[in-house]
């Protein structure tokens, strides 16, 4: 195994084993060895996070594990990101993310944010208790192709419908895709409000988001 392969392996292992120390050590090594930062991130850290996401989907990993893995991921990113050669980075697809108005439960949304970023999206996180209009305004402002809506309560689900309606009113329904998720949300609900996609969990969200944008 070449040195590069070993370092990439450590980067991935550091994330999936939730070993921040290992992820940091391997990131520093990658910089020293002048391994392309973008490669180190994608073939190392991100690969590890995707594995963590898969384990989460299989219920092997749970919320704490995903959060700890993301701690390792972000620690590594902090070291590697300044070394990215800008030309290599392509235009990222933007997604506006938030928990809808009336709800403050945001852990699920935070997990989705991590996985979407790892999946190559640029996530603009509006936080929680976000009114329908705010999603649309932000999406227009930054030219985002997708809006992601989350909620844990049945009583706030109507806000998701409002977002879709507002998009229709402004003739933006074809330009901006709507992705919904959260405890009480179901594929049936997503279809009934005219949303473009439904994701069951954070890992799934990345796949659905990519398919909606027809991104490779």
């Amino acid at each position: 195994m070449s040195k590069q392969e070993r370092i990439l392996g450590d980067l991935a292992e550091g994330v999936v084993s939730m070993d921040t120390d290992l992820a940091v050590k391997a990131s520093r090594e990658a910089v020293e060895e002048k391994i392309d930062a973008y490669l180190a991130i994608n073939e190392g850290l991100v690969k590890g996070m995707n594995e963590a996401g898969r384990l989460y989907e299989e219920e092997e990993y749970f919320v704490p594990e995903l959060l700890l893995a993301s701690d390792a991921l972000y620690a590594g990113l902090e070291i590697l990101t300044p070394h990215i050669v800008r030309t290599k980075e392509g235009e990222k697809s933007k997604i506006i993310l938030g928990v809808v108005q009336g709800d403050t439960h945001d852990i699920g949304k935070n997990l989705v944010k991590i996985m979407l970023e790892v999946g190559g999206f640029e996530v603009i996180d509006l936080g929680r208790d976000v009114p329908a209009e705010a999603f649309i305004d932000k999406a227009k402002e930054v030219n985002a192709g997708m809006i992601g809506l989350s909620t844990l309560m049945t009583t706030t689900m109507p806000v998701m419908k409002k977002v879709v309606e507002l998009l229709e009113q402004e003739n933006l329904k074809d330009k901006i895709r709507v992705l919904v998720g959260g405890g009480p949300v179901s594929p049936a609900f997503a279809k009934s409000i005219g949303a473009d996609g439904y994701a069951e969990n954070a890992n799934n969200a990345v796949r659905v988001a990519k398919s909606l944008l027809a991104v490779e």
Partner: peptide
């Protein structure tokens, strides 16, 4: 309490048996 700044990490730590 759910609006506390460190709620997410505290909540995650409390998921282990009996605690992380």
């Amino acid at each position: 309490t759910s609006l506390e700044g460190d709620f997410q990490s505290r909540f995650a730590e409390a998921m282990a048996f009996p605690h992380a």
